[in-house]
């Protein structure tokens, strides 16, 4: 049983990668696997997992933990539940510093105040003794960010960092993340199902569907001319791109773990599905400056002929 399959990604130093897809498309699981946070009995079977020149698959659990939280950090969707309710902000923040940087109590406290300042928390000193339930969601997410950047990570993975927040706060948190990313030149993976967020932040975008990469290209190209029907459908569903009337939708839902189709995973919902694509799963292949997993990329000049040749399936789902 494979929740996520055939995902391959590469991130340069200081690069911002957007990972998009509907709920259940495997965005978070991929990143949790990267962090080594897959809960038992899940397992990660990758061919290569290299961070900063070190193979994460061969180093010991202990070595791995030295990297986790220090060089690779992660922030999560739900700030209110992602902080431990029984400990103060100060305790949770200094814990990382004392563990990874070996700071003493005083130094860690000073650094914690600095960090809270950097993430824009007013009167940081008094906040150290506050508990998570005494602060708002936005403030808690700032604390999560402060915790994540505490040890100057080279890579920060943000798993839908703004989804649970107020719209007004969302922009602030995104701004904060982008500012910190530029200041520190750290790699940032922004997981989101919000195309708008990706457009604002990412240089490169990876579109995931049912645990597979569907398309992966530079953000500018992807938004200008999507190559995968799924990407095109996602973009068409953006309110900014709707041409009056109803918003476009993609019929159906992401297949679950046990009911994945035989051929192309997107074929049951694809407007251009054919007999061929229903039975043969496409490979991820280089295409138009990126990668794509589709038999009939939208930019392919021979596309219509190929679809006709493979017996197109016209169902009601095609819109």
């Amino acid at each position: 049983m494979r929740a996520v399959d055939g995902v391959s990604l590469k991130l340069e130093e200081g690069e911002v990668l957007g990972v998009v897809g509907e709920s259940g498309s495997g965005k978070s699981v991929t990143m949790l696997a990267l962090m080594g946070l897959i809960p038992f009995p899940g397992r990660v079977k990758a061919d290569k997992l290299i961070f900063n020149g070190r193979d994460l698959l061969t180093i010991s659990e202990r070595e791995r933990r030295k990297l986790t939280g220090k060089d690779v950090a992660m922030i999560f969707q739900e700030p209110m539940t992602s902080l431990n309710p029984s400990f103060t902000i100060g305790f949770q923040l200094t814990e990382t510093l004392r563990l990874h940087e070996g700071m003493d109590r005083k130094a860690a406290r000073r650094r914690a105040i600095e960090l809270l300042e950097q993430v824009g928390i007013p009167s940081p000193e008094s906040r150290l003794s506050a508990f998570p339930h005494q602060m708002s969601g936005g403030m808690n997410q700032r604390v999560m960010i402060a915790m994540a950047i505490a040890c100057n990570p080279k890579l920060l993975i943000a798993d839908e960092p703004t989804t649970a927040l107020d719209v007004t706060i969302q922009a602030q948190i995104l701004d904060l993340l982008m500012t910190l990313q530029k200041e520190r030149d750290m790699g940032l993976v922004m997981i989101t199902h919000n195309m708008g967020v990706v457009a604002d932040t990412a240089k490169r975008v990876m579109v995931m569907y049912a645990g597979q990469i569907m398309e992966e290209r530079s953000a500018a190209d992807l938004f200008a001319s999507p190559q995968h029907p799924y990407t095109a459908a996602l973009l068409a569903a953006l309110p900014e791109r709707s041409e009056g009337g109803r918003l476009a939708t993609i019929p159906g839902v992401v297949p679950g773990l046990y009911d994945r189709p035989k051929g192309c995973l997107f074929s049951p919902r694809c407007a251009y599905a054919t007999e061929h694509s229903r039975h043969v799963r496409p490979e991820l292949r280089p295409w138009a400056g990126g990668h794509i997993r589709c038999h009939y990329p939208l930019g392919d000049p021979n596309r219509t002929a190929a679809i006709q040749h493979d017996h197109p399936i016209r169902t009601e789902t095609a819109s």
Binding site: M35, R65, L67, K70, T81, N84, P85, F87, M147
Partner: peptide, 28 residues
């Protein structure tokens, strides 16, 4: 709980996660 995942993401040892972060809340 989510905060246990956070504790793991911080790179804390299993003992510390169980004996401090989890137990403190489980004791309630």
């Amino acid at each position: 709980e989510d905060y246990i995942r956070t504790a793991k993401a911080k790179g804390l040892s299993r003992l510390r996660i169980v004996a401090l972060h989890a137990l403190r809340n489980a004791l309630i």
